[in-house]
Design a protein around this nucleic acid. Sequence first.
DNA 1: CGCATAGTTCGTTCCTCATCGAAGCGTTCT
DNA 2: AGAACGCTTCGATGAGGAACGAACTATGCG
Lengths: 224, 224
Amino acid sequence: MREGPDIARIASLVGDPARANMLNALMGGTALTASELALEAGVSLPTASSHLGKLMEGGLLTVASQGRHRYYGLAGPQVAGMIEAITGVAEAVGPKRVRPGPRDAAMRVARVCYDHLAGEQAVAMLDRLVAKNVLVRDEQEIRLGPSAASHFAAIGIDVYTKPRRPVCRACLDWSVRRSHLAGTLGAAILDKILAEKWARREKDSRAVIFSLPGKQAFEKVFLS
Amino acid sequence: MREGPDIARIASLVGDPARANMLNALMGGTALTASELALEAGVSLPTASSHLGKLMEGGLLTVASQGRHRYYGLAGPQVAGMIEAITGVAEAVGPKRVRPGPRDAAMRVARVCYDHLAGEQAVAMLDRLVAKNVLVRDEQEIRLGPSAASHFAAIGIDVYTKPRRPVCRACLDWSVRRSHLAGTLGAAILDKILAEKWARREKDSRAVIFSLPGKQAFEKVFLS
DNA sequence: CGCATAGTTCGTTCCTCATCGAAGCGTTCT
DNA sequence: AGAACGCTTCGATGAGGAACGAACTATGCG
């Protein structure tokens, strides 16, 4: 019975399915709110809050309060590395669970990621905006390009009115494995998509379903 | 609520104190019997047997029956790497070190990590081998450099004889937070260190204690 | 054979901990 | 101010699983 760093304590934190889902969700690098994590983990808000408290006490998470939101994020790259290592073992050891359900397919195409759009559509959009030099990215950073203000003003989005959060942020897409656009700009674009009724949100799901004309309009504005 | 490799299942296996102690004991690289592991974990034999069954079912252990003994060992270096990663987080997060004893200090200098050397010595060695271009690393990958074969042949290590596992692997060191050398080459080097009696293994510990001449010999061969 | 040792299986007990509803606090919006 | 929202705390419930003693299987030794 030897003593060392309390590995069981840390592992048991990750060992609960709800907490594991939360940590997995946070592996993208973007901080998420308690509600978002509750949804992600498939548990009620009180349960999620309890889990988050434990993860905080265990030192695996950091939290930043912004207004009435609390943004939870991984405590650091070391924690992320640990989760990667566990994931590697799980993948090597466990049989692959293949079940691409119908809702799952829709989720891959487009879904809500807290307050912005994620999925193939969102990744394609960011790619296109960068290609057109409207946005400029180097590594994880995304900044507004020179033509950004006029470009977004033309479609009714003011990129300067919401100073609190970063305007642009990269958010790693779990289905595509590449970044999409977060931040207030990402949120504003999602707002527009829903306001214009180009798409609707699936009930009780993060999936976002584009109508046929809506998809065409979206592509004309953001993918042309 | 996403699906992926079942990380919670693996983590919860490590998350029980008894099982964590067992895995820790097996990090020394030597296979142990159920009775020894029961003692190590501080539980009764039936309890230990149950835990071992679960670890087996989870794919974290292998077993070899020899007569009426059953020798349990870690399933592989990937599992060892995962435990190192968890240990690193536990160490970083739990500053409540009860006793940073002498054995702990020795562990930081050099210790066994499943089948290869870890600790400051091991990290320094990998750095030096890369600096000398004997090994080439980019990111997480480590490959043999052009002079590797002759360099290791000169000290009696054949880098081509063990085709099953990767020859080189990076393994993140929990005490130094940088990579050391794993894989068959790492294992062969540890073998040599012990065979040449440059160092001995601490009883009931992962610590590796270099003798003074042994340390000099090691530095001459690997750090010069 | 009989006896000892090594491990596993079984059944029971017990306790931790995940879960959710309801209520409480703080923030933001109108 | 009042209403809506985001999140946490409290309390009760329930299930999973860790623990061990006893019984069972297998191997080794005279």
